Simulated assay, not measured.
Amino acid sequence: MTFPSLNPDHQPLLVADGVAKSFTMHLRGSIRLPVVENVAFALHPGECVVLGGPSGVGKSSILRMVYGNYALDRGSIRVRDPQDGAMHDLGAGDPRLVLGLRERAIAYVSQFLRAVPRASALDVVAEPLRRRGVAREEAQERASAMLRRLNLSHDMFDLPPATFSGGEKQRVNIARGFLTDHPILLLDEPTASLDAANRDVVVGMIREKLDAGTAILGIFHDEPVRAAVATRILDISSFSARKAA
């Protein structure tokens, strides 16, 4: 199968092929709810592929499958491991492979921050670097710089994000996701709860990632942001298992 790309000379970092997903409602007589079928696309270095289509068509489900949160019914999601350069099928469901690819290949900014209770904002942001063996002082310095760039008050760095507003939590979430150099970055409506000034900051950060060769797969309901960062829009309606309904 041939996939379109704005970077045809580069090998893909991610390839989804024949992916299908449904949910079974066990408390409602095991009713099966199909979501998507025959999903096929490739993601290359330096491009921002935006998942488009109406609400409920399966965009967030695709992101969660790519991150290994949702199992696949059928198909494959192959991810290039920067450690050995090989493509590994994340969709096969091997938990060790999923965790390894998250550590080395895929960063994810979800819609909602999930942080260890009572951990400070600074430690929450620095934690991915600490897992990679970066010294605590260096990790915190880099985390601090990222939080300052996102206009979070220094007085809040040592406070747990559970006490923050929605927009403040999301800035912590964005700082954490953008801090590392993972080759693939997943973004699920990262600017939805941000003011205009911080949306502009995030647009600049996305463009810097693209210039550095990061491959981004995202959902952006904010039209100006989508127009500013998208290199390609993939209409998920064409993969919807409910389109005939």
Rank of each mutant, 00 (worst) to 15 (best):
A126D: 03
S238C: 08
D235V: 05
K21F: 14
G56D: 04
I31S: 12
M205R: 08
V203P: 02
A162S: 15
L150F: 03
T24S: 06
R149I: 04
S110V: 00
M205G: 01
V39P: 01
M146P: 01
S237H: 04
R131G: 03
G75Q: 05
P117W: 08
G58C: 10
S30T: 08
G56F: 07
F239A: 09
I184F: 06
N173K: 04
I106N: 03
L13N: 01
P183F: 10
T2H: 14
I174V: 15
L97Q: 12
V134R: 12
N151C: 07
L14T: 06
L14E: 02
L187Q: 05
A121T: 11
M87K: 04
P54G: 07
R148K: 14
D155M: 09
S30V: 00
D89I: 12
P8K: 10
G204I: 02
R104I: 03
K21S: 02
N7G: 00
L101E: 09
L6A: 15
A212C: 01
D73L: 04
M156T: 05
D211V: 14
A92P: 00
N198M: 01
E223T: 15
L13T: 02
L210V: 05
D123Y: 11
P183D: 10
T163D: 03
T24N: 00
A230E: 08
H154V: 11
V57H: 07
D81W: 01
L187F: 09
A92M: 09
D84G: 10
P45M: 06
T180D: 13
M87N: 06
K169Y: 00
E208S: 14
S110L: 06
L187G: 05
V39I: 11
R131Y: 14
R78Y: 02
I106K: 02
P183S: 11
A196Q: 14
A192E: 00
P82I: 06
F23Y: 15
I216L: 11
H182L: 12
L159I: 13
A115V: 13
V39H: 05
E208G: 13
D235A: 05
